[in-house]
Design a protein around this nucleic acid. Structure first.
Lengths: 222, 222
DNA sequence: TTGGCTTTTTTGGGATACCAAATTGGGATA
DNA sequence: TATCCCAATTTGGTATCCCAAAAAAGCCAA
């Protein structure tokens, strides 16, 4: 793989894991020394990351995209029609094997699993459901939405009960798809997205002092 | 504006106007001489265009993204839930002035207008409706979808009657939004997207010999 | 100390240099 | 004439180089 793609993936990973804080400035020269490559592949990686909206311009400078809490509501509003459509299509199109694979993914994440694992599976579930729809545009849109949500979900306290609730909601959605009950699956999916949004906003609101203390640029944080 | 953005916009325009044919190979050195800039800004522009899926990699080479007729169906399937949601939100949120502005845009395109004008307004209408929803993610998704449709619409015969029908369907959607009738607006929008897809596929199918003769890489063309 | 001014440094944008891999083109050979 | 092989060319990937603008650091005077 080209050096540029390696650098792109590494920076992306650092951003999504909050290793690079939201709003933090990135200089091409610092990245140059950090990744031991020249500016050419680094600049290409930055342009690419800008297209994914993980990195932005601030005047002439590069910054890690801040987290915008206002976006979280718009994002839920965006996801509802897409994911309800996705589960309906999944009912019509997904094979039993496809569904079983998603089920296995959920099973693999048990109570003792590390936080990173829960985080990843919680994102991947929605992408995989989108994939069951068979529509690549829906998949890409959900991928983008979940990526944008990803960092806020790290910030979420992500307590045991909220994990439990999300997990059981995922289960329920999948069950309705397996049972070919599109209306119920769609209703469940819409409820789940709304619940998740509320959980997220509530816990971020409770934790706002901690976020400021860590110096993260979180827009819309009172 | 930076040279890279100028070059990006110019290449983008050439692609969307079919000045650069779908599937055509682009070499960085040719673009260099064509735009009288060095490879640095051209390379950045290409990476950016790749993010918009207007340009792709073919091995080590750059090519203009081919047109995939199979995508047209998936694209309509993607647009329906988004645009029905958009018109519903527009009913709830758009001001009379906002709606009047879109109406004025339609009015500005009269019978004698050049083909380019019809093409542009036909795309912009959907983006502007999405904007009335107030949801930036819906706007961006619709922009992307309409961009991907754009070139296929040039290939469409785009006859007088089909123009007429599209125009009156647009009118009807807008009227229902102005009258705050979300259900009717949504039904109208869904029908319009389906009708457009059918018109497009039918006329592309009829015209397939002409497309091959022009050497365009059109995937899924029998 | 502080407020404005100048000088120095740093930064991103662009141009160019260099390389390795891939492609192309000829020409020798069967 | 067809085929194989090697040299020359072209291409994208990367590393540097140069520049103008912006930011930072001194620095002097009030």
């Amino acid at each position: 793989m080209s050096q540029m793609l390696q650098i792109h993936d590494q920076i992306r990973e650092m951003i999504l894991s909050l290793d690079l804080g939201p709003g933090e400035r990135l200089t091409e020269r610092w990245l140059e020394s950090r990744f031991e490559g020249s500016r050419t592949p680094i600049r290409a990686a930055l342009v690419r990351l800008e297209g994914e909206d993980l990195v932005r311009r601030d005047g002439r400078n590069w910054i890690v995209a801040p987290i915008d809490l206002g976006e979280l509501k718009a994002l839920a509003e965006f996801r509802v029609p897409l994911e309800t459509t996705a589960v309906r299509l999944a009912c019509a199109r997904a094979s039993e094997a496809d569904i079983a694979a998603v089920e296995a993914m959920l099973d693999a994440c048990q109570a003792g699993a590390p936080r990173e694992e829960w985080h990843r599976v919680g994102t991947d579930f929605h992408v995989e459901i989108a994939r069951l729809s068979g529509n690549p545009f829906i998949v890409k849109a959900i991928e983008g939405a979940m990526t944008r949500l990803s960092r806020a979900r790290w910030l979420e306290v992500w307590t045991e009960p909220s994990r439990e609730q999300a997990w059981s909601e995922h289960r329920r959605i999948l069950k309705f798809i397996a049972g070919n009950q599109p209306d119920a699956a769609a209703r469940e999916a819409a409820d789940h997205i709304g619940d998740t949004r509320d959980r997220l906003l509530r816990s971020l609101d409770e934790d706002r002092r901690g976020l400021k203390a860590r110096g993260f640029a979180v827009i819309g944080l009172r």
